[in-house]
Write a protein that binds this DNA or RNA. Structure first.
Lengths: 355, 355
DNA sequence: TTAGGTCCGGCAAGCGGTTGCGCGAGCATC
DNA sequence: GATGCTCGCGCAACCGCTTGCCGGACCTAA
């Protein structure tokens, strides 16, 4: 009943022999409906099922070059922000019959490059969630394989992003309405596109609103990074030249201290809240904090975090759908990034400034 | 400088022609060091580099059957418990030069089966983190491809698990030391191996310690599941037969109510804390809660969660290392599961019972 | 009857590598 | 100087599936 080596699976040849037809006929019967007569096709299907035939994907991919697999690359799988994106992406891929594989690069551009190089020939397309690569590097890959970026826009590469301008406007307005006049932005990684865009947007709306905006960082986009930021927050604003190093904790608080901060992401915001409270300050009593992303857990920290919720799930789903469309040969409808609305979720980490 | 179709990459044949050698020589020069003379090899390498030759993995895999890729399947990527496991797994895989791909099955056994079937021929091995499949299904795949399971033991399949017995003993002892005499276990998914093992372990040590142990559930292992559990917690213990359905919230609290709960995982525990507090109870004032896993965020909920920390990172790393060893043909050192120590992390969600 | 079309199925050439085998050259050994 | 080794390389047969092309059978229309 089997071929020579007991363990190995039946091939298209085995099925063909069993049916008394040519391998090519089996191939067509299985993947080109209508191409062979109904009778033969039926027989082939039946025999294939009986023998437990499973096509070998590797063999199928070689001649066609198509693997029906796309990869989603995330910069840090430990960041809960990705879960909804991944879910959305998976769903979109599954709907189209594609396999989605995930790859985590641990915030390392080198790893990202390696992974992409390795996968270049084995996937049909790349989806980059918050890539840490340079625009040039991204474009180089994009020339060789269909690609979309999420949370980042690069010339000539289709992308889908949350509406950072509108989001930052909402956040700053919220703070202004509460009465805050100075806000500090806690920066994330310098290589993060979202980080620079958010900062720029914030500075612009701050100016419109007549607020004083400063920035500290960059910090790792993690809870630990937030602790570091908290310590730095209490140092005087950098426009006055001060001696470094000798500042004891809380030594530098001045009358001009920030009363509100917006952090690059929720992890940083939560870390900062912890650090601040460790330093004896209260949130939102002394300082209001708003995060970005609305990750799992943003509602269970103390106080629950006011945060800018990106449409993560749709980001993932739309990105993959567009990628799949490109793979199938569609020209991108437009070269402009797709932008999805953000939403400010007001919880309890923001309040009017003291006095 | 290029072949016919401008876009497609140079093959081994192009390099061979350019060097005036046979393709087989190129192949060997590139992957079988020492097999060709140093001079030729050097020349080939140089030409290959100049032409930008990149081997086509698909083509390489066909004859050899090896893809140098392993897949890690997780049941719910949104659960932070997996991040450290994934990190450990990635690191172990990268060290060995293997590519790790991730797949999320969203708690669905059907999806898990599909994914595995699809990947069966395209990966060298499977690592199952908390599989939702039946033992039989797991073994079926394990017969066809090297496999390890994490957080689960299945006869004949190598596995690595945290020490649930010791962990549950630590948790129960902690509760007993505080003075609790009745504890309720909040069950996770019925298909979760860890769930049944933890329950069994808890019941056993409860008996030794003279505590009354009951169980409610199953619940989805999510924050929402925890809310549901919180509501059920306040119903009377099920050993007295009671009419269903008409019990209003908190209606059934009795003098024999549980004063402590251990939840299948942290997400459930955190959800339960939220639900309980929503119902007007305080943690740990009215009820002590301990979770399992020590996920990101377990320290920033209110109150910070006492939890059983599994050695997640090592779970992932050891699992992959063992898998790789199997792939390389090593017989598993032993058929017994590898068990790694857990550790109880005492925070503030546990306290002596009231009066 | 013959020409032209449609349907089905087979042949064989890839896709891009790997690898068993064999052969000739160069060298040491007897 | 003949024998036997080792070394370096080429030949060609795969791995398992897809697909362009061809030809025979059958049908329809002129």
């Amino acid at each position: 009943m089997v071929g020579k080596q007991g363990r190995s699976m039946p091939t298209i040849y085995d099925v063909a022999r069993e049916c008394g037809v040519a391998p090519s006929t089996v191939s067509r019967a299985l993947s080109r409906p209508g191409r062979v007569s109904a009778r033969t096709s039926e027989r082939i299907h039946e025999v294939a099922a009986r023998m437990g035939y499973q096509p070998n994907p590797l063999a199928k991919y070689l001649p066609t070059g198509r693997t029906e697999t796309v990869v989603l690359i995330v910069s840090d799988i430990a960041n809960p922000v990705y879960s909804p994106m991944i879910r959305g992406a998976e769903q979109a891929a599954a709907q189209a019959g594609y396999t989605l594989v995930l790859s985590d690069i641990d915030e390392s551009p080198d790893r990202e490059r390696d992974v992409m190089q390795k996968l270049l020939r084995t996937v049909d397309g790349f989806a980059l969630a918050t890539s840490r690569l340079s625009d040039a590097a991204i474009r180089t890959i994009a020339r060789q394989r269909p690609m979309v970026t999420m949370n980042r826009v690069t010339q000539q590469v289709p992308s889908v992003v949350p509406d950072n301008d509108q989001g930052m406007r909402a956040a700053a307005t919220h703070l202004a309405d509460l009465g805050h006049g100075r806000v500090t932005y806690i920066s994330g990684p310098a290589t993060s596109w979202a980080n620079v865009v958010r900062w720029r947007a914030l500075r612009a709306v701050g100016e419109q609103l007549g607020m004083k905006i400063r920035r500290i960082g960059p910090y790792a986009p993690t809870v630990a990074g937030g602790w570091a930021a908290a310590a730095d927050l209490l140092k005087p604003a950098p426009r006055t030249r001060t001696g470094r190093g000798s500042a004891g904790p809380a030594a530098g608080r001045t009358a001009t201290a920030t009363t509100a901060v917006i952090a690059y992401n929720d992890l940083l915001a939560i870390g900062a809240m912890q650090g601040l409270s460790d330093l004896g300050l209260s949130v939102p009593g002394d300082i209001s904090i708003v995060g970005c992303d609305n990750i799992l857990g943003a509602d269970w920290c103390t106080p629950p975090l006011t945060t800018l919720a990106a449409p993560l799930r749709e980001l993932g789903a739309t990105g993959i759908r567009n990628l799949l469309a490109m793979i199938k040969g569609a020209q991108p409808r437009s070269r402009r990034p797709v932008v999805l609305p953000s939403q400010l979720i007001v919880r309890e980490s923001t309040a009017p400034p003291r006095a």
